[in-house]
């Protein structure tokens, strides 16, 4: 095995095989900002046999699930997510793009009812996975520039 650029973590989550350049977007999805109490390690532009270049994000003491995985699947469906417990890969969490993206994207249409104060979550129908195309369930409009509309 080659030298590891990022040191192993004891407990937490490793997101590997992120397409190069998307690591910061993944951090945004994970809501990693000032209030984070655990260590986050980011490796950008790492050589990869399969991908040429890739990014890696390691979050200590946190196991990702549900919506966080859905969001990552939206922008970087080729990534792998491994849950680490006591230095071992305890679980591989598969990334699967859902048929509906609920509560993870904001509609770009300012006149859409999902952008008004109502007790609903945004909801998008995934019309095509590659290339990714989503349509708002409420206003029926296609969302352009999906990444910048992640909640």
């Amino acid at each position: 095995m080659r030298e590891l650029r990022v040191t192993p973590i004891k407990n937490g989550t490793v997101i590997d095989h992120i397409p190069a350049g998307l690591a910061l977007k993944v951090l945004k999805i994970l809501g990693i900002g000032d209030a984070v109490t655990s260590t986050v390690t980011v490796a950008m532009h790492v050589p990869s046999q399969a991908m040429g270049w890739k990014d890696i994000v390691k979050v200590e003491d946190r196991e990702l699930g549900g919506r966080e995985l859905d969001k990552i699947a939206l922008i970087a469906p080729t990534s792998t997510v491994n849950v680490i417990r006591n230095y071992n890969v305890a679980e591989k969490r598969p990334l699967a793009l859902p048929d509906r993206a609920v509560g993870i994207l904001r509609c770009a249409n300012p006149n859409c009812i999902s952008n008004v104060r109502e007790p609903i979550e945004s909801s998008f129908v995934v019309r095509s996975k590659s290339p990714l195309r989503v349509v708002c369930k409420y206003c029926d409009r296609e969302l352009e520039d999906i990444v910048s509309h992640i909640l």
Binding site: N111, C112, I113, S114, C136, Y138, D140
Partner: peptide
């Protein structure tokens, strides 16, 4: 006036909703 209002309305009632124009 808001697009998608009728679909939202239909989610909150069992009664039939007829959309008479949403934005």
């Amino acid at each position: 006036p808001h697009e998608g209002a009728a679909r939202l309305a239909a989610e909150f009632t069992e009664k039939p909703v007829l959309n008479a124009g949403d934005g």
